[in-house]
Simulated scan of single mutants.
Amino acid sequence: MNFDKELDARGLNCPLPILRSKKALGELTTGQVLKIVATDPGAIKDFQAFAKQTGNELLSSAEAGGEYTFFMKKK
């Protein structure tokens, strides 16, 4: 998937991946995509809730080898 910015949140625990994603999304323009890579298993539910609360679109989420990758589109 194409993305405009990547955020490495590996090794960070809740709420840091969300807080850093919020900051990174603030630097993007409407319609741009942020890729986030995290290792916190709670990130799956966190990013679903974050998308619902902020209106940003969670395009996809996947897990591989203990890493979680999310693609979020700025509203």
Rank of each mutant, 00 (worst) to 15 (best):
A9C: 09
G42D: 11
E27R: 08
G65T: 10
N13W: 05
G42I: 13
A24S: 14
E57V: 04
S60K: 08
P17Y: 10
G11R: 09
I44L: 11
G11T: 10
T30P: 00
E27H: 04
F71P: 02
V37I: 15
K73P: 00
E67R: 15
Q53K: 14
G66D: 14
G42M: 15
K5A: 12
D40K: 10
K22S: 08
K5W: 03
T29H: 06
G55P: 01
L19D: 07
K5H: 07
L58C: 09
M1Q: 12
I36L: 11
Q48Y: 08
V37M: 04
G65I: 06
F71L: 15
L34F: 05
Q48C: 09
V33Q: 01
G31W: 01
N56A: 03
E67P: 07
I18H: 04
K52T: 09
L25I: 05
V33P: 00
L58M: 15
L25H: 04
L12T: 08
K52V: 04
S60V: 00
A38Q: 03
L59Q: 09
I36H: 04
L25K: 02
R20P: 00
K73E: 00
Q53F: 11
T30Y: 05
L16Q: 12
S21T: 14
K5R: 13
D4C: 13
M72G: 02
S21D: 06
Y68D: 02
K75T: 03
N56G: 05
K22L: 07
Q53Y: 10
G31K: 03
P41N: 04
M1P: 07
D8Y: 10
G11Y: 07
A64I: 11
K75A: 05
A38V: 13
P41T: 13
E63L: 08
L58I: 07
T29F: 02
G26W: 10
F50H: 06
L7G: 02
E67N: 14
A49T: 07
P15N: 14
A64Y: 13
F3T: 04
I36Q: 05
L58H: 02
K73N: 04
K73F: 00
V33K: 04
P41M: 10
F50D: 00
G11M: 10
A38I: 10
G65E: 13
